[in-house]
Design a protein around this nucleic acid. Structure first.
Lengths: 151, 151
DNA sequence: GAAGATTGAGTCGTCAATCTTG
DNA sequence: CAAGATTGACGACTCAATCTTC
């Protein structure tokens, strides 16, 4: 058994922590807000725009899933009445996804659950110095990684 | 649009970075070592034991997947000739999963690809101080998170 | 023809039910 | 009966092919 590289161990811990947090997010969102983590993210992106609306393709890039995958997620949320497909007269090949009033209520609830989960599993275990160091390092990492695939 | 909690942004960056690294790992492992990240991890766990062998249930816990899920992954690797199912005479309800000689070659190759990917996407962008801080923080986080679900 | 969205087929995991062995 | 493994049904995403609109 070879002697593992130390930075490999660091990444492994980080990845385990990330997975644990994600699992907790998914569990709580499912139980308390009737939506998955991905569905939360989708609605969060919509709610962050002035018109609460985005094109399918832009949404897919932000969520980092394929257009085909997004079609299915959107189907589910439309079914639930939380978003709506709009095609504007000016360009009928684009589909705009819009957050409905019910969707707005849903994302607000989900956001609460999400924030609590992050607080309990993440923030609560770190002090302000940890958070600042982590912020700096994560930004640095992300900046390098996203040079390849800008969003 | 509410003002997001700062630690929420930190976690978001961290999660994005983790996702990007995982995607790169999966891509390179698939292309250069003919296996997925999960399959790599499975063989890595086996190769870390003295007999290169583990029970299904122990393997499932380490990989953090369900027993049912593991059965499928194992099926694939058995098919490929990289692992073997053994039932020992002393306890015929347990299944031991053993790394074969071909599997040993495969994991050694995969480990190389894995280490290169981590190096390029992770280590290379951080200095030794970053790494040490990250190691400390990740350990702290993980320790708290795993109090709930020990492995 | 190419951008944008959807569809069908396939892959890989979960969950709950079942089978087997101690 | 309970531990351990497998199976069937399913859910959610990817990929490649297709459809529609510019």
């Amino acid at each position: 058994v070879p002697n593992p590289n130390p930075s490999l161990l660091v990444w492994r811990s980080l990845h385990l922590a990330d997975t644990a947090v994600c699992n907790e997010l998914n569990t709580r969102l499912t139980d308390q807000a009737d939506c998955s983590l991905l569905e939360h993210d989708l609605m969060a992106w919509l709610s962050a725009t002035p018109q609460r609306r985005l094109r399918m393709i832009d949404l897919a890039m932000r969520l980092r899933i394929t257009p085909g995958g997004l079609t299915r997620v959107v189907d589910r949320l439309v079914e639930r009445g939380w978003i709506r497909r709009d095609t504007l007269a000016q360009n009928r090949r684009e589909v705009q996804v819009t957050l409905t009033e019910n969707g707005l209520r849903a994302i607000n609830k989900a956001r609460q659950v999400y924030a609590n989960a992050i607080n309990d599993t993440f923030t609560h275990h770190l002090n302000s110095q940890d958070l600042e160091q982590l912020r700096r390092i994560a930004s640095k990492l992300l900046q390098q990684l996203e040079l390849d695939q800008p969003c």
